[in-house]
Design a protein around this nucleic acid. Structure first.
Length: 430
RNA sequence: UCCUCAGUAGCUCAAUGGUGGAGCAACCGGCUGUUAACCGGUAGGUUACUGGUUCGAGUCCAGUCUGAGGAGCCA
């Protein structure tokens, strides 16, 4: 008798094993019961035949309710009728706990109902697959950077200042003083980069925007690499290598999950560096040629980004050198085009922006001038300006949205399914 | 914040201004290969809330609440 998991079941063919899990679903005839089991690592069907098990076990099968916790003993059989290729011929069954009437059936449900039951919805096949992919993305992102000698630095979540002049910060009380939940770890990453060379932060960020779209969360996870002595072009190379590494490894390790999600693998296999690059100027030109309304100097809306993202044979595209008025104060102006900055957004086909990044201003005077131009409170950026006083160097960084990356790889249509417990405009529970 | 739409059984949805129904889930029974199994039966309702029009309102009108889709903001 071997204790095993469904994920490893192929190694136990024709052996008697025990699986500890839950009843996902059940179908029965008078003398045969099909138990759909799950244990967190996968799904498998257990078959109990009346003549081949004790009457106690067969009757217990009949009593089982959806999501009851059970310990299932059986022999692993290869079976072409099974979606995963394997079945379990049940020999014995232990009830760990009988589930009460389970609210989520396998039929259709509305999104409000499902989000109200998110704590249970996580158990369903599709949600399970999405979150396995999300975990893999985070794992490969860290692996890629760790392999390149990056140091993982945690930036604070409670901060005293607003890095960008927006009213999009969640306010918290900090011993009687106003503080805010971080909407980026970038400024801290820049400080750490000057100490460690290449760093990244990876943590939750918060935006108090009353966004109501399939692309926005009020709490989301962001990977923010920051590298000293790295210019704009070097940053783009790092970004495309990172995306390629994540996508190609997820294809390999999450085959079953992507199949569950009905994802077309071919669309993912072609995601390999280098990615095409166009300037903002060129992008505006393309949009105008397509008859879309846009004037130079305006930032792109969702329809613009989607259109641009789909013009490059299924590859993500870098849009570089935006007008400086569209972008954050800390971005390095392009000496050849001082009205633009050395930045890039990476637009994923059919989705839009998944990365935003730039070379940072490293010159103290230019930084102070930009802070002034944007009417930002100078005292807030005191320590940030310090980084330009003591051995300043050119450096670049970017932010990758974990949930957006998850959408692009899984193909799910709404970002609330790309995070375990979404925080959105109308939802803070469960 | 703006625009659009919706709210009826636990869930997903029907119901011309005229006796509120079905499928699934639950419960009882049947079936030895089911893949959201199937078949028969039972039970299940303050039609989101408040007010109005009407002989009569789930249905029409006004307001409120809740949610969804889209826009803006961005990762």
């Amino acid at each position: 008798m071997i204790k095993t998991t469904i994920g490893n079941i192929s190694q136990q063919e024709n052996q008697e094993v025990v699986i500890e899990g839950w009843l996902y679903n059940k179908r029965s005839s008078g003398k045969i019961q099909f138990l759909q089991l799950r244990d967190g690592t996968g799904f498998i069907q257990g078959v109990a035949v009346k003549n081949e098990v004790s009457s106690e076990v067969f009757n217990l099968c009949k009593e089982l309710t959806q999501e009851s916790a059970i310990r299932v003993f059986g022999i692993v059989r290869k079976d072409d009728r099974a979606p995963s290729g394997y079945e379990l011929t049940i020999t014995n069954l232990e009830l760990v706990s009988l589930a009460m009437k389970y609210p989520i059936s396998l039929k259709e449900h509305g999104i409000e109902f499902l989000m109200d039951h998110r704590h249970l919805w996580l158990r369903s096949k599709r949600q399970h697959a999405i979150l396995k992919v999300r975990a893999a993305i985070g794992r490969y992102a860290r692996e890629f950077l760790d392999n390149r000698g990056f140091t993982h630095i945690d930036s604070p979540i409670i901060t005293s200042s607003a890095p960008e002049d927006s009213g999009s910060l969640f306010e918290v009380d900090y011993f009687g003083e106003k503080a805010y939940l971080a909407q980026t770890g970038q400024l801290y990453a820049e400080a750490a980069a000057m100490a460690f060379g290449s760093v990244y932060t990876f943590g939750p960020t918060f935006r108090a925007e009353k966004s109501k779209t399939r692309r926005h969360l009020n709490e989301f996870w962001m990977l923010e690499p920051e590298v000293c002595y790295l210019d704009h072009e070097g940053s783009l190379k790092l970004q495309e290598d990172l995306i390629e590494y994540i996508v190609q490894n997820v294809i390999k390790s999450c085959t079953l999950e992507l199949k569950t999600l009905g994802r077309d693998i071919k669309e993912l296999e072609i995601i390999k560096a280098p990615f095409p690059r166009i300037t903002y100027d060129k992008a505006v030109e393309m949009l105008k040629e397509n008859g879309m309304e846009i004037e130079w100097g305006e930032d792109f809306g969702a329809p613009h980004e989607i259109y641009l993202s789909e013009q490059f044979n299924g590859l993500p595209v870098f849009v570089t050198h935006y007008p400086k008025d569209c972008k954050a104060f800390y971005m390095e102006p392009d000496p050849d085009r001082p009205d633009t900055v050395k930045c890039a957004d990476l637009l994923y086909p059919g989705f839009g922006e998944i990365i935003g990044g730039s070379e940072r201003i490293h010159d103290l005077d230019i930084l102070l001038q930009r802070i002034q131009e944007e009417n930002l409170p100078m005292e807030v950026y005191d320590w940030y300006a310090d980084l330009r006083k003591y051995g300043t160097v050119p450096h670049s960084g970017f932010g990758l949205g974990l949930e957006r990356m998850t959408i692009c790889i899984t193909g799910v249509d709404h970002i609330r399914e790309a995070i375990p417990f979404a925080r959105t405009l109308n939802r803070i529970t469960p």
